[in-house]
């Protein structure tokens, strides 16, 4: 399976979180807001600049905005 960065995923695509390689502070925050490895995320809006907006399909479709810098440190893979 192709591993890519969350920041590279196109709109509407559904992906699975493989690894969160951010610093500890950002990681704890992501976990607290319900984003864990193996969660299934749908990218709602990923413009060419600014934060990536995702919908966490594993957690009640909660929508979380993730800054581009952090999204570049989250590894994901495609799911159908």
């Amino acid at each position: 399976m192709l591993v890519m960065l969350l920041s590279e995923v196109n709109n509407e695509k559904v992906v699975k979180v493989v690894a969160i390689d951010t610093g500890n502070i950002a990681k704890q925050r992501l976990l607290a807001l319900g984003i864990h490895p193996n969660d299934i995320l749908q990218v709602v809006s990923n413009p060419s600049f600014g934060p990536v907006l995702i919908k966490n399909l594993s957690k009640d479709n909660a929508r979380i905005a993730i800054g581009r810098g952090i999204a570049q440190k989250i590894k994901v893979e495609n799911v159908n």
Binding site: G23, I25, A26, R29, L30, L33, P51, L53, A62, R63, I64, A65, I66, G67, R68, G69, I70
Partner: peptide
């Protein structure tokens, strides 16, 4: 700065 991680409530 640390990047943004924020919930967008309904």
């Amino acid at each position: 700065p640390i990047g943004l991680i924020m919930e967008i409530p309904p």
